[in-house]
Nucleic acid binder design. Structure first.
Lengths: 211, 211
DNA sequence: CTAATTCAATCAAACGATTGATTGAATTTC
DNA sequence: GAAATTCAATCAATCGTTTGATTGAATTAG
């Protein structure tokens, strides 16, 4: 089995198939034959490249991590800044998150796979959490603390950061329900902006009260 | 196949097994033999009582609907009331929701099954949504409108209601991640209250800004 | 009342189909 | 031509479902 260096055609195709099918149907409900068919290759290729179905799952998680860091940027320590500027930064991040979750057709498989892994508490979740999520959440806490003037490591702010992100993530997880109730056929550009505006208003209201 | 009248032992045991295993492992990953073993009966009982695995899934959804309406009460039209009282009502509902999602050991299987069905957009979701969720969300919108004085049917308030509920639901879906970051072994009484307090503060801040 | 019959319910066993994995030969790549 | 890769074919195991037999409690018949 190779590691990750060579982006062979078959290898990349299998990962793409995994991201789509694992996210769309779930890990258990996705057969190796369905994966191979979608990748346009033979079932034996899965064992050859990844050692097996589980190996492909982890390779998909690594691919998610790779792409997500490429988009969201490597987690960095945000520089000290005035409250208004930090708030603007948070607003930008929140809107980017909503856009990433609800639109971005090329990111649909990524998001789907990630949410599946989260719902199933799968092995890929641990990797993504430790390598990305953990630091991003800490970064969020620091920005919030710059706005409210609180302690970035306090339980209160850590929960606040989760509740802000959670709103956005829920709108993706609960998409079937939201669309039915809002009488939207699906999430389009206008719908995505309506959600972002709503959550942005929430962000400002919450942080203003927290000051 | 019976309908629902007789709460036969085997029938009830199979539904209990379904609620637990479907929610815990997912529908596809749960075998009929595992279901029968947990229910202490024979695999053939599934086909006999429910017509098959899919039938058991729907019976579980009906059971969820039955229990959830028994707890949350049938969706009713909230009477007109002053803003402060409506806000208090919303606060109580939010705290009850958090408590139901994060604690309530007897409700763990119910919540798990429901969230699974939501994540998989399963056939049980449509039933629960149409029979309960839809009306409950409308009830929520009316209460919010009483606080802010806006139109309960406006897109803005409908999205607001989703963002309030979504916060609570996310804390349950993202439990593995939240617990890791908060360094909590699991959700206990203190943790549940910390989350409820956080979301209650968000509720007040958002509705105050919305007035 | 007793015997014959029907019925819902459960069981062990087996069905064909599908699962993930493996094999060794064929093919491609360099 | 040697290594890397893909292929068809096959493996044992498990999948959801079905079968025919069996049980004990109702129901019916005489």
């Amino acid at each position: 089995m190779l590691d990750d260096s060579s982006p062979s055609g078959t290898r990349a195709d299998l990962i793409a198939a995994g991201l789509h099918l694992f996210g769309h149907d779930g890990f258990a409900a996705t057969s190796t034959r369905a994966l191979a068919a979608r990748a346009g290759t033979n079932v034996a290729s899965i064992a050859y490249h990844f050692g097996g179905k589980d190996g492909l799952r982890m390779a998909c998680a690594e691919e998610v991590l790779r792409r997500i860091t490429a988009v969201a940027g490597a987690p960095a320590e945000p520089p000290q800044m005035p409250p208004d500027e930090a708030l603007g930064w948070l607003d930008t991040m929140l809107r980017a998150l909503v856009g990433f979750l609800t639109q971005a057709p090329q990111a649909a498989d990524i998001v789907g796979f990630m949410l599946r892994e989260m719902a199933e508490d799968g092995p890929g979740l641990a990797l993504i959490y430790e390598s990305f999520f953990r630091h991003k959440h800490r970064e969020l806490c620091r920005l919030i603390a710059m706005v409210t003037g609180g302690d970035p490591d306090s339980q209160s702010i850590r929960l606040l950061a989760f509740s802000l992100m959670g709103q956005a993530i829920y709108f993706r997880i609960g998409q079937p329900i939201v669309c039915r109730r809002m009488e939207w056929p699906q999430y389009g550009e206008a719908e995505s902006r309506a959600i972002a505006d709503r959550l942005s208003a929430n962000l400002h209201a919450i942080l203003r009260a927290e000051k």
